[in-house]
Design a protein around this nucleic acid. Sequence first.
DNA 1: TATTATAATAACAACGTTGTTATTACGAAA
DNA 2: TTTCGTAATAACAACGTTGTTATTATAATA
Lengths: 329, 329
Amino acid sequence: MAITIKDIAKAAGVSYSTVSKALNDSPLVQPKTKEKIHQVAREMGYEPNFAAKQLVTKQSKTIGLIWPTLDRATHSTLVTELNTEIQKREFSMILSVNPVQSSLDLFKRFHVDGVLIFDEENNLSPAVTAPFPVVSYGAGPHNSFSFVDLHYQEAMFQAVAYLKELGHRDISFIGDFSPINLRQQEKYRGFERAMQHFNLPIHKQSFINSAGLEWYDGYQATKRMLRSSTLPSAVIGASYDISAGIVRALRETSLVIPKDMSIIGYDNIPQMATLEVPLTSVGVPIQAIAEQMTSLLFDQLEAGSTEQLTRTMSSVLIERHSCARVNGR
Amino acid sequence: MAITIKDIAKAAGVSYSTVSKALNDSPLVQPKTKEKIHQVAREMGYEPNFAAKQLVTKQSKTIGLIWPTLDRATHSTLVTELNTEIQKREFSMILSVNPVQSSLDLFKRFHVDGVLIFDEENNLSPAVTAPFPVVSYGAGPHNSFSFVDLHYQEAMFQAVAYLKELGHRDISFIGDFSPINLRQQEKYRGFERAMQHFNLPIHKQSFINSAGLEWYDGYQATKRMLRSSTLPSAVIGASYDISAGIVRALRETSLVIPKDMSIIGYDNIPQMATLEVPLTSVGVPIQAIAEQMTSLLFDQLEAGSTEQLTRTMSSVLIERHSCARVNGR
DNA sequence: TATTATAATAACAACGTTGTTATTACGAAA
DNA sequence: TTTCGTAATAACAACGTTGTTATTATAATA
């Protein structure tokens, strides 16, 4: 049987309510007594009973994470980061890999304090509600939950501006044009608008549909592009995985990055630096996203509010070694 | 405020202890009353309070999963499968991506009922113990926990036997020879022994060290192999990711699989079928591993035992389209 | 010195369950 | 008709906390 506050009370010669207060660092108990109780608790190896605590405080100290698709590299990193953030706050994380709606039901049963969603498709009905704050991230207010706005368009502006600065005019965007994925659409539109804004030429070759988010999709799209007669001097990959595929395809055709072609990838995750060619990238750093999502959620928890909030995050451009001035360095 | 059994009791005109018994399907309450109580509970949208239940039963209905490395494809699949198994049993899963020891400490605080580990490195001190059953999987009894023995050697026997049957004699094994990874070592030894057993030639080219488990490691190892003058007629990839790299490297050199070279991959996960070439594979199917791990854990839970148990699982060979009879179609 | 304010601690109810014990009602046996 | 056994239900303690209220000891005030 585990040690309880009553055992500590007996050992320390005080009442158990005093122990409770002492361990919660209440000002209602004398510093001396407090210290002694802490001492005894430590010696006895006391571990608080979460169930009891939860029963009376109605806080489960648990955050649910909904993660319907397990396979994107960005996501693995984000999960790890979120887990770190959550543990920093002495909460724990419970994971569901089921569809959003059923995950929400599950989490309701578990009385989680809050929920983090990342759902690539964002195909939630706006009617979905939950008895706890929910934070997601991505492209826009697609539902009633709070979210961290990643401002994909801004990232694309950054990328295009940077490439133009280096003298590039013919730039292609390689990404997934799926109509159900809002995030990908935003990247597309951001690229399109940036090209217009900077007065750069747009033609069919400017947009290359990978029709998927796996590295192989990017690989094949690039291969297809390379078969055409006129080639851009730079490409933008819409995600880490797609960019990995682009790099692969380029190298196979013995095009040297960045001499023969520059490339910028979306997604600021550490893995960008460990690709075959360290990739210059744009996007909100994944760790910052994790921090922002978590702090938004905990702010709502503290405020006891379920209203929808938005926090916008700025994209950053990190220079590595995949871009060069046009016509030789 | 949520509905409790007391609310139901009032509404149904019985005592709350009767409600508790009725909802737990106790034989101590009349079928008629039982039915009425269930009815009322349903109407009122009753959700049991886990904290209260846990407080009295000392069961958290939660399984901890330790998953220190988030990036291997096999692992993502296994997590999903395990999650499914656990939910089938009305338990929930809590995830830790921290090192084993600190995860165990975390789970102790949370009073989980049991723990599932998958730790590629298996570098646990044998002294590590836990107050709940722990199940891991892999190569052997490297610590005091129960585990599901995957019999890697048998899988390699299967692969070699199958290739020999097809007329192959020169077979290479491409895998990670890291001395700290027991599983990889078992695959290596299994291959070596199988080759000896079937009287097939062994030379330096038979063992190719990918020095890593990423697809790119397999890719580079294969490239290296392809530079040598004599080539095997078949290769065995030690994991899904490595095999993906092998396929990639082979295709780049315009070697046709399986006409020019046969390949068998270890790991029986669905993704094997969706590689560029659907791969014939050996290994215990991932879903079976998940089932076995879960059922072993729950058996121990029910028996209330923490003693170390082992369950051995047999590898299966799944034919797809990456192997051909030697010399010809 | 007697009274009052205050600081420290103790006592206890409450949270929502489960499981054990007590009470009731009713039919069977004396 | 009275007593007994039994089936059904009610009552209640317990789980380990927190937070509110009650009690004590001590110091400050009249």
